[in-house]
Nucleic acid binder design. Structure first.
Lengths: 194, 194, 194, 194
DNA sequence: CGATAAACGAGACGGTACGTCGCGTCTTGGT
DNA sequence: ACCAAGACGCGACGTACCGTCTCGTTTATCG
C-alpha cells in the first residue's frame, strides 16, 4: 500500500543502482573503451534492452551513474588564508585526477570534450557546481583584503585546474605538494619582477 | 647493409603519404571515433593488411601521420615584450585548439591522455618541443628584467595552456583576445592585492 | 446470470472488432511476417497484454479474426451443368487466392500447414465447410446423370484447388479462365485416349 | 602449386559443407522458424558474419543448402504403362512431402510461396527440373497410344501434386497408395460418366 | 639483366559489440 | 472483471570494425 512496488515511480530503471555500480566499476577496471553496454548489462544482471530503454548511449549511462554517485563530491576548505584555501583546493583537484576511484572517471570526462555531449555536460555541471561552492573562498579573501574586489576567481581556478591537468596528463609528470604551492603562488603573486 | 634494398629506405610504406593524408582528412571529417583502420585503408587505396604491417593501432597511424605533417608547427613570437610574446603564444595555442584543421587533432591528442600511449606521446613530444622553442621568450624577458632569474617558464606555460583548454573544452565557452590578455596578466602580475 | 454484466457476453474482448480489423488490415498490408502482436495492439489501440489474455499467439488472433470476418465466405454456384458449376467454383477459388483482400490471408493460411495448428485449423475448417456446401453441386450432377453414383467429389475438388494453388504459388504463373476450364475438363473427362 | 589453397576458388565459403549440413539439420529439427542464422552459425562452427558475407538472408542460405544437397533428387520411373508411371511418380511426391528428411524442407519451400523469393525460386526450379525429367513418361505414353498428342502433362502433374499436397497439409489426412491410384485414375479417366 | 626478398593487394575469417525488434511475462492501478 | 500502462528478460536480428591469416603479385635494387 505504498506508493509504488515497482521502484519506478521516479523515472529510473528498477535496477538502477546495480547498473550504476556496474558502470563505475567497469569504468575503473577497463577504462572508458572497455566500458561497453554489453558488459554493463551483464554485470548489472540486466538485459541490454533495459539499458537502451533508458539511455541512448553509453555516455548517457555513465553520466547518469556519475550524477547518481558520490564520487564527484568534494569539500570546500577554509584554512584562514586564501593561499591555504587554494592549495587545499588544488590538492582536491589533484586527488580527483589521480585517485584510483576517480582518475578513470576524470580521464573519461575530460577526454569527452567536444564529441560526447552527455559526458561533457557532466564535466561542465561539475565545474559549474564547484565554482558555486568555491565562491566563499574568494569572498572571504576579498573580505580579508587578500584579493581586490575585481579579481576573477574563475580565471584563477581555470589556471590552477588547467595547470594540474596539463602537468599530469600531457606532461605525464607527477604533481607534488610543492608544485601545487608554486602554482598557487604564481597565480597569487605573478611571475613578473617587482 | 647500407641504404636498404627496397626503395623503402625510410622505414615507411610506399603509400605513406596517401595513408597520412587519408588519416588526417578522416580525423578532420569524422572525428577520432570515425577514424577507423578500415576507412583509412579504403581512402588511401591501401589494404588493411598494409596498415597493420606498419603500425599496431590506429593511434600509431595517427601519431605517424601527425609527426609527418606540418600541422603541429607553430611560430615563436618576438614582440619586444614578455607580455606581448605570451599573448601571441596564447593566441597560437588557442588557434591550435580551435582551427578547423587542428581542432580535431588537438581534441584527439588531448583526450588520449592516459590510456593511449602512442597518441599521448605525440602530445608530450609536441609540448616538449614547444618548451624548447619557447625558451628564448623567457630568456629575453629575463635579460630585459621583466622576469626574475628563477622564474619557472614551464609552470607559466602550463597555466596559460591549461586555462585555455579548460575554458574551451570544459566550460565550452569561447576564448577571446581579452581573455588571453587577462590570463597573461594574471600569470605575470598575480591576483593578490599589492 | 442471463445477459451478463459486462457487455462481454460472448467471451471476446471489448475491442474485439478493432483488434480483428487491425489484424486483417495489417495482414493485408505487411503480410504474415509483418503482422506482429505489437503492431496489432498499437493499431487496435489495445494493450499487448489484452491480446495475450485472450489468445496465445498471433495465429490464434488471426484465426479468430478470420472466423469473425466475412472474408472467407463464398457462393455455391448453380449453373445447370456440372462443368459450369466446377468452373465457377474454380473461379471462386482462384479469386480467393489472388484477390487483394484475400490473397495474403490465403497465403498465410496455406503456408501455415504443419507447424501452425491454429491457422491450419482455420484452413481445415474452411475446406470442410466448403465441402459441405458444395455437396449439392455433385448431388445435382449425379441426379442429372453427369456423374456416376460412386464419384469422389472430394478428390475432384482437391485436384482442382490443388492445381490452381500449384500453378499460382509454385509455378508463379497466372491462371486464366481457359486454364480453369482445362482443369475442369481434365477432371471430368480424363487425359487418356478413348 | 595448385590453383588455390583457400578452398575458395569456387565462390563458396570455406566451410560451406558444414554450413549446409547445419542448415538442413536445423530445418529438420526445429522447422523453418527455428532455423536461425545464429543457430546455423553456431552449429556449423562458423561466425555469423561469415553467413552474412555470403548470403543475405536465411532463405538464401537454405536455398544454397538445398541446391547443394541431394535431398531433392528423385527417380523417374518406367513401369511400362502410363498409369504405373504416374502412380510411381505420385508415390515419389508423397514420399518427398512426408519423409522425415524431406518433409520439413518441403513444408518450408511450399510455405515460402509469395513472400520469400529465394526459397520460392528453389521450389520453382525444382518443379521445372522435374517437369523436364518427367517428360519421357508422357512421351512414351503418347507413343504407346495411351495419351493423345495434345495432352497437357503439366496440368496433369499439377493436379496430382496439388491434390496430394492438399490432402496432406490442408486436410491433414494421410494419403495411401489407394488414394494415389484413385487420383491417377481420375486424371486419366475423368470423373464424368461415359 | 635476372634473382630475390620485402612490401603489397585481395579478401576470407573469427570475434566483439553494436543498436533494434518483437516476443511473452509481469505488476500496478484505474475503471 | 477487465484492461491500460509499461518495465522487463530474452533471443535474434543485421552491421561495423577489429585484428589475423594465406596466397599470389608487384617492385626495385643487388649480384
Amino acid at each position: 500500500m505504498d506508493i509504488a512496488s515497482d521502484g519506478n515511480t521516479s523515472g529510473r530503471p528498477r535496477r538502477a543502482d546495480a547498473i550504476f555500480t556496474a558502470t563505475l566499476e567497469l569504468l575503473a577496471d577497463k577504462g572508458y573503451e572497455g566500458l561497453t553496454m554489453e558488459s554493463v548489462a551483464i554485470r548489472a544482471g540486466v538485459n541490454k534492452t533495459t539499458l537502451y530503454r533508458w539511455w541512448k548511449s553509453k555516455d548517457e549511462v555513465l553520466a547518469a551513474a556519475l550524477t547518481d554517485s558520490e564520487l564527484l563530491t568534494f569539500a570546500v576548505p577554509d584554512t584562514g588564508s586564501l593561499r591555504g584555501d587554494l592549495i587545499e583546493t588544488s590538492r582536491g583537484i589533484h586527488e580527483l585526477l589521480t585517485g584510483t576511484a576517480t582518475a578513470p572517471i576524470a580521464a573519461a570526462v575530460l577526454a569527452a570534450a567536444p564529441r560526447r555531449p552527455a559526458l561533457a555536460a557532466i564535466g561542465r555541471a561539475f565545474f559549474a557546481d564547484r565554482a558555486e561552492r568555491e565562491h566563499p573562498i574568494f569572498r572571504r579573501a576579498i573580505d580579508r583584503g587578500e584579493l581586490p574586489e575585481q579579481a576573477d576567481p574563475r580565471l584563477m581556478m581555470d589556471m590552477l585546474a588547467g595547470a594540474i591537468w596539463f602537468r599530469l596528463f600531457l606532461r605525464a609528470e607527477p604533481v607534488r605538494d610543492a608544485d601545487l604551492a608554486a602554482a598557487v603562488d604564481l597565480v597569487l603573486g605573478g611571475a613578473a619582477t617587482g
